[in-house]
Design a protein around this nucleic acid. Structure first.
Lengths: 209, 209
DNA sequence: GTCTATAACGTGATAGAC
DNA sequence: GTCTATCACGTTATAGAC
């Protein structure tokens, strides 16, 4: 409801609860989260949670919807800019998305694990499909194929590669840390490197082989 | 305990419970799973679950450990074959892993979302780190860099790209299905295509740019 | 709006008969 | 080993005072 910039300064009780819920739900998922955890995180009484948001499930739906909206909002802007090239869009996408995820590293696992219980309805509420399928980005992709600048390929492969390269490290972070003695700093540095590397890899794969 | 080929034929009650637990835990995760769900799935009485496996947590640990062992077992064989080239290993990896995941598509989300609650101990129990770091695969990677067949790059980037390309589509499957009118068959077909495409993309990125 | 106390319910686990 | 019945407890949600 409120503009985004104001959100963190909006210290109403309702907003305090929502922020706390976001943190705990993102961290532990719906089922593992107790309303008491949220109340404690928000420094408020448990009863207030139900006063403002009727039920745990309702509060969760609010958080989930906002999370997914924010998560895909960063995409929309880039995807539908008429004035940037296909290549530029990929660069911007890697750049912005990695920044967003560095600040909210638990979002991918949260979204993707909760999505397995809440199927199609939510996705259509957000309109992810239209967002992608009607995008300038995809038009430019197809145009590239016609002009033979891009190898003929199913766009889904391309999307999976691009999103996978950006998102997967954050999903696999706990495993990565276990693998390579990767500290928090080192991980951040790797992700910064990927901002430049991913566009090279992706575009290379589209033009060669 | 029992050899793997026998497992599905092993119709002891204990094994029936474990199989049911695997299915339900993989699908819904630890917290969202009720022991009653497992009992029902196994067509046994709830009390039997506790008779064989003391507690829900204990049963979960058994399932989790076996899942991760199976999950990484397919890697070990490929990674440490002295008689196959680096390129061949990548091809085999994509081929086998995609097959494994097509048969158990819920494993990645399960493992990665449960891992956020059960950190380092489990990974060291499996020995994932040694498995990778001492592998023939990684030695060949470094050898390739020395011989300038491979561009100088942090192996972690390479691992993330390779694993991401293989695993990510299964993690994002619900979203993919929402995106591109992807039916179950279509998804399977896309994954089959990726078996051949991933090695090309990966090796291309290692040699060019 | 905010609190304390408690109701109502779901879930993990066990006792005890067979 | 397997079942039914039940306990014990944690958690969501609400009633009611302030």
């Amino acid at each position: 409801m409120a503009p985004k910039a104001v959100k963190s300064l909006d210290n109403t009780t309702e907003e305090k609860i929502k922020s706390a819920a976001r943190i705990v739900f993102h961290q532990k998922g719906y089922s593992a989260t107790r309303t008491r955890d949220i109340a404690e995180e928000a420094n408020i009484n448990l009863a207030l949670l139900n006063y403002y948001f009727r039920s745990k499930e309702n509060l969760f739906n609010v958080v989930m919807l906002e999370t997914m909206r924010d998560f895909f909002q960063s995409l929309t802007d880039v995807f539908n800019d008429e004035h940037t090239s296909f290549e530029t869009k990929i660069e911007q996408l890697a750049d912005r998305y990695i920044d967003v995820l560095l600040e909210n590293p638990s979002i991918p696992v949260f979204v993707l694990s909760e999505l397995r219980n809440q199927p199609q309805e939510l996705l259509s509420k957000i309109g992810v499909k239209q967002l992608l399928m009607n995008s300038v980005f995809l038009k430019q992709f197809h145009q590239g194929i016609i002009e033979k600048k891009i190898k003929q390929i199913n766009p889904m492969h391309f999307i999976m590669n691009l999103m996978g390269m950006i998102v997967f490290p954050f999903i696999a972070e706990p495993m990565m840390k276990g693998l390579g003695d990767i500290s928090g700093e080192h991980f951040q540095q790797l992700m910064q490197e990927r901002k430049a590397l991913i566009p090279r890899w992706i575009l290379g794969a589209l033009k060669n082989n």
